[in-house]
Design a protein around this nucleic acid. Structure first.
Length: 278
DNA sequence: CAATATACCTGGATGC
DNA sequence: TGCATCCAGGTATATT
């Protein structure tokens, strides 16, 4: 579910309520997510600690504790972080529950269990974070995200430009929905070999990525099945979709029916007229 | 090294 | 209504 905008919306929602709070109880489900739930580390390094702030890197949320330890949460495909009053019954697929000193709870609910929870203990957190961050791509809303940089990244690459946009080791946070939307707005066919894009193409990709991701954040992210921000509000960016999920519907620009294909195993939507094949 | 396949899971939609 | 099948926002690993 969640790509960069949904994770950022979640982060902002939690920022209003978590900093300053102390974690007074931790409950985990018996299940493993993409990685085993680090129950021991959670109790050793997160329990009884105060939350300082929350950051985001790629699609990961970093919850920074006053001890210097960091709780890292990834939402996978179906993960949601919700803020609850507390006292509510445990729900199916609640895999991590942090109870705060004001009685409220933060719950990670993830039916498909593709999410992940990790803990970086204070003693090694700096190294862990550098290593982690080095493995993630550049931030689309950061200063490194320039046409020149992308042009260099794509040099001589024959993989489809859509795959490059979605390759988290090169570019962080762009998943299937936003890759489709960005390429539609940039008028670039998703299957175009990445190395064939011109500087002018990349300038459009940069501008449209920033515009679309920021608009998505401002509208609360995309709610397709059941994404809710931390405060329980749905997102509305799906109302702005121009291509994603619109097979057979008219292209908002020229009226031709949107086509759906599969690229690298992912659903791919585009307008055959506005995004001519390479 | 790059492209592709597969695996991890549940649940909703669709079709018979 | 029941059952089988397909599909889904992500990512790591193995295999060509």
């Amino acid at each position: 579910m969640p790509e960069l905008p949904e994770v950022e919306v979640t982060r902002r929602g939690l920022m209003d309520h978590l900093p300053g709070r102390t974690v007074v109880a931790i409950t985990v489900s018996g299940h493993r997510l993409r990685t085993p739930m680090p129950s021991r580390s959670l109790h050793e390094h997160i329990l009884a600690r105060r939350i300082l702030t929350l950051d985001r890197r790629a699609k990961y949320l970093l919850v920074r504790m006053d001890s210097g330890a960091v709780l890292v949460i990834h939402l996978g495909m179906t993960g949601k972080l919700g803020l609850l009053d507390g006292g509510e019954p445990r729900h199916r697929h609640d895999h991590l529950i942090l109870t705060l000193d004001n009685g409220h709870q933060v719950r990670l609910n993830d039916s498909r269990r593709f999410g992940a929870v990790m803990v970086w203990p204070a003693a090694t957190a700096e190294n862990a974070e550098s290593a982690f961050s080095a493995g993630e791509g550049i931030e689309p809303l950061g200063s490194e995200f320039t046409a020149a940089h992308l042009h260099r990244l794509a040099d001589r690459k024959t993989a489809p430009v859509k795959s490059l946009l979605m390759n988290g080791r090169l570019i962080a946070g762009i998943g299937n929905i936003y890759a489709n939307e960005i390429l539609f707005a940039s008028r670039i066919h998703p299957a175009t070999p990445a190395g064939r894009l011109t500087m002018a193409d990349w300038r459009r990709v940069v501008a449209e990525s920033q515009r679309i991701l920021q608009l998505a954040i401002a509208t609360g992210g995309s709610t397709i099945a059941d994404f809710l921000g931390a405060t329980g509000h749905p997102g509305y960016f799906q109302l702005h979709f121009q291509a994603y999920g619109r097979r057979h519907l008219p292209c908002p620009r020229c009226g031709q029916p949107i086509v759906k294909t599969s690229l690298t195993g992912r659903a791919t939507y585009f307008c055959p007229a506005c995004q001519p094949p390479p």
